[in-house]
Design a protein around this nucleic acid. Structure first.
Lengths: 202, 202
DNA sequence: TGTAGTCATTGACTTTAGGTCAGCGAAAGT
DNA sequence: ACTTTCGCTGACCTAAAGTCAATGACTACA
């Protein structure tokens, strides 16, 4: 990687971190592209070298932390199903919370943006999350931790709805509850409940 | 109500129904205020007599159908808890689906809009829905259908997250699954599961 | 029935901010 | 040393949200 590429990478990183700061502080609608570029020390046009639209930078902000969760899960294949799911829920909400409610709110709005929903775009993130959960469950069926007749897809769908719903409700509530507390309670009280009739005692 | 007020009411109704048509067809971002007013046969300025911002009309579209659900539930006080909840989930998703995915998507984006989140604004709709569910559960505790030690708030929260999550995921999926089918399956397979340890056999 | 007042309606106008692009110059390639 | 590449610049463009003074049909009251 040569000097020019390093500079470009640094500029993009600077834009993303500056945008995150401003988003946390003021929210997406209250800032404009020039606010971001001025604070980052570049010209307005530079923004559009890295992001097609103002909204796109929000999706980039979350990309790194979320991709880490997937990597973590692969290293935990020996954990029990409930513990694995608890970890996933916990880490997901941890990412959500660390980005701040303004960022998370705009991220959700972005993902619901018709421009991002079509195939292969960021609106499909929910699908990767769903598939990850489905694979975890399917794996538990294979290892015999869950019964053969477990409705894997339905349960994965229930879980993904719960997760995204928790995030959505948190944003709607304007941060009136602690997402990590609720997640923990949910995992403690409801996770085993949801799986009770499918879990074996192996 | 005099002629002038009737005309005004009719104009607003016309704007709302025209907007719903256009939203279903093209989506929020693809239409502008003039598209709505032209098709409704009024001038652009008239729009702003009834709605402060372009976004506000979407919230009004959903107000009537959703308020009907609350009324229905009050007439069903003799139903069993699970049946009551099943009805609520079913009717909620029916409203969601009948508005069309574009409208629903924008409605969710609207409700997440920082301008609508503060106290007393439409962003708090989730709270009314949560309170409605909480009251249904609290009532079931009073009648003895649920045990005294039922964690009413946690369960109401789980349900509201599931409901809003289902809607959010449907929008994100670009309509790749049938919300009514999924709701029905969820109610059949999971509702009794969620309450299993709290339900009495009275 | 006449007249003063109200208010829904109008559409030209303002404003704002997202997005474009031709040109620049430092770095890379030869 | 010369050419090419490409990240960066910022003045400029443009679309569309939102404003407002003027209008005239309707209401209210004498």
């Amino acid at each position: 990687m040569n000097k020019r590429q390093l500079c470009a990478q640094e500029t993009k990183r600077k834009l993303i971190s500056t945008a995150l700061e401003l988003l946390k502080e003021k929210g997406f609608d209250a800032i404009n592209v020039e606010d971001i570029t001025k604070k980052a020390g570049v010209a307005k046009g530079t923004f559009y070298t890295y992001f097609k639209r103002k909204e796109d930078i929000v999706l980039d902000i979350s990309r790194v932390p979320f991709s880490e969760i997937a990597q973590e899960l692969q290293k935990m294949s020996d954990l029990k199903l409930i513990d694995k799911l608890t970890h996933y829920f916990h880490r997901f909400m941890e990412c959500v919370e660390s980005c701040g409610i303004n960022t998370c709110r705009q991220w959700t709005r972005d993902v619901l943006d018709p421009n991002n929903v079509p195939e292969n775009k960021d609106g499909q993130k929910w699908k990767y999350d769903y598939e990850m959960l489905r694979d975890i469950l399917a794996n538990a069926v294979n290892t015999g931790e869950l019964k053969k007749d477990t409705p894997v897809e339905l349960l994965a769908h229930v879980l993904i709805c719960e997760l995204y719903g928790m995030m959505t409700c948190w944003c709607m509530s304007d941060g009136k509850f602690e997402p990590l507390d609720w997640t923990q309670k949910f995992c403690e009280v409801q996770l085993s409940q949801i799986f009770s009739q499918y879990i074996t005692n192996k």
